[in-house]
């Protein structure tokens, strides 16, 4: 009787162990889905786009015929945009994080700013497009120009930069700041000479990642009027412009198959730039790995 029970128990335990092993495989499989899709995506883009990719493609302006179409205008437009976005969002973003981490009194206002930033991060990017359309394009009368696109994008990535900078500032140990105060340094001297330099690698990494989000962002640019067909390069903040993702969207949306190859080539250029930016971010992070 007892032995029979023991046998049953052993069987039950075996079943449980097998179930565990089976589910482990299932979990692993699910994890691999993401990786497989990524591999397929790269494979697809490369097979479609590599054949069309050439130096000519990179250095040509848009064209109504797919043989001549190139991404030069989009590339240059995206670079202009990134410069505007970087300048505006780094200044405002780092200043915001400094205020929150170093100056803000522990009161309602600081709490409101914090919660507000958290919520801004969740606002769909297209809504930022509507904001830019109303304020920058119409109210400030900038029109469908580079500056309007750049300012819209800067606001879009601001929450990412603020959060990343806050984390970087928090990672600077208090003892080091105390050492500075102990020498009779003022608050701003301590921030400018000790805290900010020590947090800089973290801030840079976060900023590059935020910029790489901005460079691939399409929807808000469509709303604030990045043009698809542009045959001149921007030469000022108030030029008409296009950007890489706008070009890619435009090519993808055309019905003829040939344009899909052009779009594929454009995506390769865009992904290559993203890869470069992310590698720089990783390098910065590793090079200046915090020593505290």
């Amino acid at each position: 009787m007892f032995e029979k029970n023991a046998g049953n128990l052993q069987k039950k335990v075996n079943n449980r162990v097998w179930l565990n092993k089976g589910m482990r495989t299932l979990f692993l499989g699910a994890t691999l889905v993401g990786l497989i899709v990524l591999a397929l995506l790269f494979y697809r883009v490369l097979t479609q786009g590599l054949g069309y990719l050439s130096l000519d493609f990179i250095t040509s302006l848009p064209s109504p015929s797919f043989e001549d179409a190139g991404i030069w205008a989009g590339l240059i437009g995206s670079i202009w945009l990134m410069v505007i976005v970087a300048v505006v969002s780094i200044i405002i973003g780092v200043a915001t994080s400094l205020y929150l981490e170093e100056y803000a009194p522990k009161n309602k206002i600081a709490d409101i700013i914090r919660i507000n930033i958290q919520n801004l991060a969740g606002v769909p990017s297209i809504v930022y497009g509507l904001l830019g359309l109303t304020f920058f394009v119409y109210m400030f009368s900038i029109g469908y120009r580079l500056l309007a696109g750049g300012l819209t994008m800067a606001l879009l990535i601001l929450p990412i930069i603020v959060v990343a900078s806050q984390e970087a500032l928090r990672s600077v140990p208090n003892e080091v700041k105390e050492a500075s105060y102990g020498m009779g340094a003022t608050k701003w001297q301590t921030i400018a000479r000790v805290t900010l330099p020590a947090a800089l690698p973290g801030i840079l990494t976060g900023t590059i990642i935020a910029l790489s989000r901005a460079i691939g962002e399409t929807a808000p640019l469509i709303i604030v009027g990045a043009a698809a067909a542009i045959y001149t390069l921007p030469d000022s903040l108030l030029s008409k412009y296009t950007a890489m993702p706008i070009q890619i969207y435009n090519w993808t949306a055309r019905p003829q198959d040939e344009w899909q190859y052009v779009a594929g080539a454009g995506i390769i250029v865009l992904l290559a730039i993203l890869l470069i930016m992310n590698s720089i971010a990783v390098l910065v992070r590793n090079k200046f790995q915090k020593r505290f």
Binding site: L40, L41, R44, G216, T252, Q260, A263
Partner: peptide
């Protein structure tokens, strides 16, 4: 190994995903 790859997946521009959906 896996976490950075998932991060890459999260960093792909949505226009690229759109292209992938439509053409693949």
């Amino acid at each position: 190994v896996i976490k950075p790859i998932l991060e890459v997946l999260a960093g792909i521009p949505t226009v690229v995903y759109g292209y992938f959906a439509l053409t693949f």
